[in-house]
């Protein structure tokens, strides 16, 4: 398993960077928010990977089981998922509001309209 000891973390970093790339390279505000959500979900995978113990099991206490995975990252991520969705909702509401005010959700067109005022 030593070869794959850091595999999870590297994949998570790759996924984070795809999300980050969408956020900074795309001009469309909806796609930016999808990128943020991709980034967020990859952070969740990082935390859950940290909590896993080889040979451990789900942290629900039962007779005859001695090794459980770490429950603390699970708790933190449960909170983070719900908070993540509420921030996504707020971001999307802002996008809808921007669409009503500028009639576009493309970043450079919004900048053009601001400059021409």
């Amino acid at each position: 398993m030593n070869v794959f000891g850091l595999y999870n973390y590297w994949i998570v970093i790759f996924l984070m960077m795809t999300g980050f790339y969408v956020v900074i390279s795309s001009g469309n505000l909806v796609k930016k928010i999808v990128g943020l959500s991709l980034f967020q979900a990859s952070v969740f995978i990082l935390y859950i990977s940290l909590g896993k113990i080889t040979g451990g099991t789900v942290p629900i206490l039962r007779e005859g089981i001695t090794l459980y995975s770490n429950p603390l990252p699970h708790v933190l991520i449960l909170t983070a998922i719900v908070v993540g969705v509420s921030t996504t909702a707020l971001g999307l509401a802002l996008v809808v509001r921007i669409k009503e005010a500028y009639d576009t959700v493309e970043e450079d067109e919004i900048h053009q309209q601001d400059e021409s005022l």
């Binding site: 990977s49 896993k52 789900v58 942290p59 449960l78």
Partner: peptide, 8 residues
């Protein structure tokens, strides 16, 4: 699920 976090 694979990483034992069923609640998550």
């Amino acid at each position: 699920v694979v990483l034992d976090a069923v609640d998550v």
